[in-house]
Write a protein that binds this DNA or RNA. Structure first.
Lengths: 223, 223
DNA sequence: TGACATTGGTGCCGAATTGGTACTAATTCG
DNA sequence: CGAATTAGTACCAATTCGGCACCAATGTCA
């Protein structure tokens, strides 16, 4: 007996993340009147012959008014939990939006990750997993750079890392490690941010580097 | 205009991984006569009201004759590439099978990851992504422990890490880091493996530990 | 039976990395 | 001009890392 496909209902649920005044924020859209919850993630079914990221881009554009530059797959969910459109399977996609980019359209609004309104249970799971994925990949994916404008100060970058990791970082160590990674290069612009010394602007420009990694880290969470 | 679901064909493609004589091996099943390729990943459509991991467990059991203990989601694929069952969307799931566990059923066989036969393009992608995901999560997920029997020697464990990371590890450093991680505990059994001093057997038993992580690592790949 | 090969496990030490404090630099505010 | 504020760096002690050497326990073979 060889396998055969069956028809399933599928939804792409998009978690647009952006740093917003010292917290990570998620973009939610207002649901139709009469729905069980007032807010939901932007979502839709993928159109025929449309890739998942294309679908995510389309959905994001509809809610944020800007095409997103970076995606991170969160994974497929097929628990029994309720989805706003009753899709059998959800594919969660995290979209990273640079701080201050895009203006939410009429029925969309930013919510701090720590203070979300009630969501359909499936969407709640997708958000949680998206946040976890992004946080876990901070040091393997250029996640932090995609939450910043094309040029940024090193303090901006460190602030994003601290947001994502949820802890303070040592300034000198952070810069030493960044230097050694060849991930950024300085521009010749400087930014004066009100008071204090102006900061040099950098851009994300990863260079080839020999993968001279050292010892193993056992960073398992005690699950 | 609010979103609506559409019907799509969906496949769960399973990548069963197991260490096999010094390489990672993948379980493939023979395809029906007349198919474009002679081998494919074990796959099927999820049944109604079946979770993704349930489906993966069922598919694995059908090919390996043993229920798998550990899953790692690889993600959903919806590129235009060809799938053996022409599914619109594939969900890749990596299943970790302890070394020597299970006996492939009639039409299934282990292939070293580095020497796979021709596969449908979509399956090829799924395998590559599964391997990449497992390798990347080695130090965040108990991946290595799921590729070993319940008790194992530290040399076994180090060998798996080396397989996954693709490089030698320093013995003393490896053990120091492992010690500090409180992930394993010794049993009072010893195993004599032919010649040489017998090795103490350990089991995976993660303990709570304060998350005293240090500096950031910028381990981005030069993509 | 006793050297030797083989594998397991640990101690030591110089080198590299880390994180804290303190310092200098450049700017705004009053 | 001096105080306040933010950027960036220098130094240094403590920790961690990685290489080497060593000891331990077993099987092999003369």
């Amino acid at each position: 007996m060889s396998p055969t496909v069956r028809r399933t209902t599928l939804a792409v649920d998009v978690v647009v993340l952006s740093p917003r005044s010292d917290t990570l924020a998620v973009l939610l859209v207002r649901t139709a009147v009469g729905a069980r919850e007032r807010w939901s993630l932007p979502w839709d079914a993928p159109q025929a012959a449309e890739g998942l990221e294309e679908a995510a881009a389309r959905i994001t554009t509809a809610a944020l008014g800007a095409a997103p530059a970076y995606f991170e797959q969160v994974g497929a969910l097929c628990d029994g939990r309720r989805h706003p459109g009753d899709a059998d399977v959800s594919i969660g996609i995290a979209v990273l939006s640079p701080a201050g980019d895009g203006i939410p359209l009429e029925d969309a609004e930013w919510f701090p990750l720590a203070a979300l309104p009630a969501l359909a249970p499936r969407h709640r799971t997708v958000v949680d997993r998206a946040a976890a994925v992004v946080r876990q990949r901070v040091d393997q994916s250029p996640v932090a750079f995609r939450l910043l404008p094309p040029t940024f100060t090193l303090s901006d970058l460190q602030a994003v890392y601290q947001l994502l990791l949820g802890r303070r970082l040592h300034k000198a160590s952070f810069r030493r490690a960044l230097q050694a990674s060849y991930l950024v290069e300085p521009t010749d612009e400087w930014r004066s941010e009100g008071r204090g010394r102006p900061a040099q602007l950098f851009r994300y420009a990863p260079k080839k580097r020999r993968g001279a990694r050292r010892g193993v880290r056992f960073d398992l969470f005690s699950d």
